[in-house]
Write a protein that binds this DNA or RNA. Structure first.
Length: 820
DNA sequence: TCTGGTTGTG
């Protein structure tokens, strides 16, 4: 074969191309293919005969063989055959070889030029396609024909540059060719230039199915659902029936408009008209039903498909992933591989999101590696963003940040993903830092999604002023009724102690979905207003809003914090029997917490024993927390033993257990628990409190002695201590976890971070100004008591938000009624 | 050799 090639001296290839010598290391089956091809060439003469041979070239190597044989036999001199080779290389994805072959054709005709243009378009080289047409129009004397413009207009809509070509079309007089006109209309729809599209469409002398579909799909793909539906109505009024193309265009609109009924009616139409075997239609139905959460329908359609393509597999994988069944999504991925389908970029995006849900870090790394090997992460922001999100959800924030930093094509969503990643892992400072960097970048402007990412970070650390500034920006662009932003703002104001503002926001946003209801219920729960939560729940039902599992989580938490045990039990019952929501471990945790706080430790314990799910750390942790409050060492020991079986890494639980022992002065046990934690390499999270003053957030750690005002703060606290004692305060040493003398215990209590922050606030604000602080852990019982005294003595309203809830102190009384 | 169709991240 090499000999054959080296003797080849055709006008197409004056000397053998290097590609030939490298690619002609043939395998034995390829060799037999060559023999078959060469025999075929000898026997064939008409261009129809050659089509059969061309169709056999499904691999680049085989195409090159055929190419070489055509050169040798001299048949490549035919323009038709040479041009057909341009097409074959295009079909095989080798646009460079396609161009090389094109350049070698001595007398190009319109078919040759059109084939080259199509080759570029087929391979995504849109700019090159437009340049190629310009080259044809300006440098050759070949006149474009009806085939020239449709593919290049397809390229134009992607690079958003089609006016010049439209002028050419007009000049040459192809404006009213059905294909060309449809392509133009579709292009203008995609540009959002609806007026031009409408005018062109209206002026068309004749409209075929393709024209109607071009305009409908153009509107659909531009996200303009109403226009698309209105054209669809016109089409049906003119007595034109929908075909498979119309249906696969319109189905995504049904999902977008939350119109399941319309989607199902179309399904009936499809069955009636025998269109259900169209792969595009089936795929579109899988996607639509998945978006409505109707997985069983998606699955049924997938099962009934006779022919499935890659999109079908991607769709069913995404369907399970989007409906929170990551393991099923992965199952379908393996199934897809068994069916010999190669994963593409979109498969990987769904897989990354599935792995994010399963939190399997090993699989996460392999997904990341795969996307690097295929260079997808270098070329596409979506897969990069999915990987950043995946690492963040797994909790590997360093990896997430590294991938984010190295993303060559970042978009706004990349930034939002990184910010959300930090926020959801409780790293508000890092989130705010990334947000700041983003604002400094000229290429990116924060908008809805970014604010949705950053507002929870502000809420988390109680940065009300920054949050309000963001609210201002939201108002400025008129997004204040956006349900996502509105919910974030409800959460922000609620968590910053501004319940009135939270309620104001709540009444501003659309309330048809349970999400804003959940936010406002949860805010009231945080403040211990359990009865208000129950009232809001009744209002929600009156307005016909269907509660979801988060609604019940918020309600149960609220009941737990307010001691509303009976209402909590009612909610738990209604959730399952009226709304068919299966309780998750979180719901069980809330119930245990509720019984436990109310002192019904035995009920809580029995409740755990009867759970149908295996209790996790949060469930046992709730029981342990209750044992700590009510001083039940025996049950506490039982809970902590079970707790450390399921989670031995969370330092908070060791602290809880050692607190419980310390309360009873069982110091040897305290040491035991502490050394256990130490042996496992765990460190107690240092307690800190923050306060926002004059646009600055000051952070105080327990025992802080480095603050510029620390001497003054401690001096004032000592004076205050004396005043409190005269009003009946006795320090509760139960909250001191060290076995030291009483004097020292008192000093330890006085240096708790929340007191330092409160005193700093008092010293630096005018009298009667309310003080608001945030504490990263739970406020201890003694500090709670002391804050009541401070609010009375200093005549200040003091709002303390800790990791658990809100405490509002006024005139020596706490809003929680000391139930917390 | 051509148009109009389905799947993606926060």
């Amino acid at each position: 074969m090499r000999g054959l090639l080296s003797t080849c001296k055709s006008s197409l290839f004056p000397k053998p191309l290097p590609a030939f010598s490298t690619h002609f290391r043939l395998k034995s089956n390829s060799a037999s293919c060559i023999v078959a091809l060469s025999t075929g060439i000898e026997q064939r003469n008409s261009k129809f005969d050659f089509e059969h041979l061309f169709n056999k070239c499904t691999k680049t190597g085989t195409a090159k063989c055929l190419h070489a044989l055509l050169i040798v036999s001299g048949k490549v001199q035919s323009i038709f055959i040479a041009t057909r080779l341009v097409n074959i290389y295009a079909y095989l994805g080798d646009v460079l070889l396609s161009r090389e072959t094109f350049d070698q054709v001595p007398r190009k005709d319109a078919y040759t030029w059109n084939s080259m243009v199509s080759s570029y378009v087929r391979n995504g080289c849109y700019r090159e396609a437009v340049n190629c047409v310009n080259e044809m129009l300006l440098t050759s004397d070949v006149r474009p024909d009806f085939y020239t413009f449709p593919p290049v207009l397809k390229a134009c809509r992607t690079i958003r540059d089609g006016t010049r070509l439209h002028c050419w079309v007009f000049k040459i007089g192809f404006q009213w060719d059905v294909f060309v006109a449809a392509s133009l209309v579709h292009m203008y729809c995609r540009f959002g230039s609806f007026d031009i599209a409408h005018k062109l469409f209206k002026d068309m002398p004749s409209r075929d199915m393709g024209c109607w579909n071009a305009v409908i799909s153009g509107f659909c793909q531009n996200g303009n659902a109403n226009e698309a539906l209105s054209v669809l109505d016109d089409m049906r009024l003119e007595g034109v029936d929908m075909d498979a193309v119309t249906i696969s265009s319109i189905l995504p609109i049904c999902a977008q408009k939350h119109d399941l009924l319309h989607g199902m009616l179309i399904h009936l139409y499809v069955i009636k008209n025998g269109l259900e075997f169209d792969v595009f239609v089936s795929n579109a139905f899988i996607n639509m039903y998945a978006k409505f959460g109707k997985l069983e329908f998606s699955q049924r359609i997938f099962d009934q498909m006779v022919v499935r393509d890659l999109v079908s597999w991607n769709s069913i994988i995404a369907a399970y992933e989007q409906n929170d069944y990551p393991h099923d999504a992965l199952k379908f991925f393996y199934e897809m591989q068994r069916n010999k389908f190669q994963a593409d970029l979109l498969t990987l995006v769904s897989l990354a999101s599935s792995i994010a849900q399963t939190r399997d870090s090993l699989s996460g790394k392999s997904i990341h590696g795969f996307s690097i090997r295929r260079c997808w992460i270098m070329e596409d922001a979506v897969i990069g963003n999915a990987v950043v999100d995946m690492y963040a959800k797994i909790g590997a924030l360093d990896s997430a940040r590294k991938v984010f930093e190295e993303l060559p094509c970042k978009d706004t969503i990349s930034w939002n993903t990184m910010i959300t990643g930090y926020t959801q892992n409780g790293l508000a400072d890092e989130a705010i830092e990334v947000y700041r960097i983003m604002k400094d970048c000229e290429d990116f402007t924060p908008y809805q999604g970014t604010w949705v990412s950053i507002l929870p970070a502000y809420a988390h650390i109680g940065a009300l002023r920054d949050g309000m500034r963001t609210h201002g920006q939201v108002l400025k662009v008129g997004l204040d009724t956006d349900v996502f932003l509105g919910t974030c703002l409800i959460d922000l104001y609620g968590k910053c102690g501004r319940l009135d503002d939270a309620m104001f926001m709540f009444y501003e946003v659309p309330r048809a979905s349970p999400v804003p209801w959940n936010a406002i219920i949860s805010c009231h729960g945080l403040h211990g207003h359990g009865e208000t939560c129950m009232q809001l729940f009744r209002d929600m039902l009156d307005e016909g809003v269907k509660p979801d599992h988060v609604t019940f989580l918020s309600l149960l938490t609220a009941c737990s914090h307010s001691g509303l045990v009976d209402q909590g039990k009612w909610c738990f019952d209604v959730m399952q029997h009226k709304y068919g929501i299966k309780p998750t471990l979180k719901h069980y945790g809330c119930m245990v917490d509720m019984f436990g706080r109310a002192g019904r430790l035995d009920v809580a314990y029995n409740f755990i024993e009867c759970m149908p799910l295996r209790p996790d750390a949060s469930v046992w942790g709730a029981l342990l927390g209750a044992c700590r409050i009510h001083g039940n060492v025996e049950l506490g020991k039982k809970a902590s033993d079970r707790l450390f079986e399921v989670d031995s890494e969370n330092v908070g639980y060791y602290v809880l257990m050692s607190n419980l022992y310390a309360k009873f002065g069982r110091w040897e046990r305290v040491d035991e628990v502490r050394s256990l934690a130490r042996d496992r390499g765990l460190r107690k999270t240092p307690g800190w409190s923050s306060i926002e003053l004059h646009n600055r957030i000051e952070v105080f750690y327990t025992g802080n002695q480095t603050h510029p005002q620390h001497e003054e703060i401690y001096k004032e606290l000592a004076i205050l201590n004396a005043k409190m004692k005269s009003l009946g305060y006795t320090p509760d040493y139960n909250f001191v976890l060290q076995d030291v003398e009483d004097d020292e215990k008192e000093n330890i209590l006085t240096s708790h971070s929340e007191r330092l922050a409160i005193m700093y606030g008092i010293l630096n604000t005018p009298p009667r100004t309310p003080i608001q602080i945030y504490k990263n852990l739970r406020v201890c019982g003694d500090c709670h008591n002391v804050t009541k005294f401070i609010s009375k003595i200093m005549e200040r309203e003091i709002i303390v938000r800790d990791s658990n809830r809100f405490h509002q102190f006024k005139d020596g009384i706490c809003s929680c009624g000391d139930y917390w």
